[in-house]
Every structure is written in structure tokens, then in C-alpha cells.
Simulated assay, not measured.
Amino acid sequence: MRSGILLYGPPAAGKDTVTTALAALDGRYVPFRRLKVGSGKSSGYRMGTAAQLAGLEAYGDVVYRNERYGNIYVVDRPGLDRAFEGGAVPVIHLGQVTGVEQVAALSGARWVRVLLWCSRTSTAERSQRRGDTDTAARLAAWDATREDLHSYPQAMWEVRVDTDVATPQEASQQIDAFVRSAAPQS
């Protein structure tokens, strides 16, 4: 059975950094590049058009979509199929629990649900340090993430990592250990 990782957390919790550490630990871990319709940062995304999005929607190939920072972000079925090729373990970054639920509900894959957390202060400091021009919007997203978490049971998270305490390498080792222990034995 195919396996994947769903990284959930507020802005600047370390999703990119932990994904990089996972890939360094084991080359099977690959970042899933969501389709992004809009402007701004393109690194880490597959930039798309409104027409492409409409086509995916028409064929029922949108697994999850959300709007934030004036853009649309999409987890799509064709993109996921490509991400699993060659036995890869895609790592998907999500900022909404509903996204985690919708992707985890896909049949044919075992998804490990990971909560990466950091303090609001850390989000502000990390956002400014990396040069974000929309730190206020990222703090509003941090607030929304915290509210989002209160609506769901903590048991939905198989791995929880506080990135204010754990290094990216420690986080990746903890996630990798869980993925390996949860893998079906052949």
C-alpha cells in the first residue's frame, strides 16, 4: 500500500524545513507540490491557471482546495498519482484540518497525520526572518489554525512535534520512525 505524510501546522511551523530533513534522511520522502493559482511565491508549487483548475474540478480531480493570501491551493488526484511513482512517499503541507481529513480519506494510501506546532511568537519571528511581506496575514492564519485545532480531537494526530523545541532532524527522525512502524509488514 502507498504511504504519504500530511504535515499540518500554522505558518512558519517548519513544514518546509522538516520536509527537507525527511528527504535528507530517506530519499523516498518527496515534497508534494500543490497546484497554486494566483501570484506570489512560486517555489514549491506547480503554478496553474484558473482554466486548469476548472478542468480538474470538471473531472472530479480536486481532492482539496483552499484559498489563503489571495491564492488558491489545490491537492489534485493527477498530481498525487505522479507523486507516488517509484515508491515515493509524498509529504503534503496543509494549513487546515479539513484538508487533512479530505486527503486522509482517499483510498489506496496510508496517510500519517503529523501536527507541527510552534508559538505565535515563533511564527512572527520566523516570518520576518525569511522576509515575508505579509507577516500580519500569517499571524492571522496562526490564530485560525489554533481555532481549527480546538474543533478536532487531538487523537487525530499520530505524530506531534513542537518545532520550538525539536530540531528539524529530531522531527524528521520521529516522523520517519512512526512511518516505518505503521508500514504493513510483508
Rank of each mutant, 00 (worst) to 15 (best):
R2G: 03
R2N: 14
I5N: 08
G9K: 05
A12T: 00
G14L: 00
V18Y: 02
A24R: 15
A24N: 13
R28P: 05
Y29C: 07
P31T: 07
F32N: 09
F32Q: 07
K36L: 11
K36W: 08
V37L: 12
G40Y: 08
G44D: 10
Y45S: 11
Q52Y: 06
D61I: 01
V63Q: 09
Y64V: 03
N66M: 08
R68K: 10
Y69I: 02
Y69D: 03
Y69F: 14
N71A: 04
N71S: 05
I72R: 11
V74H: 09
V74T: 06
D76S: 15
D76A: 15
P78W: 00
P78K: 02
G79D: 11
R82V: 14
R82H: 14
R82D: 15
G86I: 05
L94E: 05
Q96A: 12
G99F: 01
Q102Y: 01
V103R: 05
A104N: 12
A105D: 12
A105H: 09
L106A: 02
L106P: 09
S107D: 14
S107Q: 12
G108A: 05
A109T: 15
R110C: 13
V114T: 10
L115P: 02
W117M: 06
R120C: 06
T121G: 14
A124C: 07
A124W: 03
E125N: 13
S127M: 03
Q128I: 12
Q128L: 14
Q128D: 13
T133D: 09
A137E: 12
R138L: 01
A140V: 10
A140W: 01
W142A: 00
D143Y: 03
E147T: 15
L149Y: 07
Q154C: 04
M156N: 06
R160M: 13
P168R: 03
P168K: 04
A171K: 01
S172A: 15
S172H: 10
Q173P: 06
Q174C: 12
A177S: 15
A177L: 14
F178W: 15
A183G: 13
P184K: 09
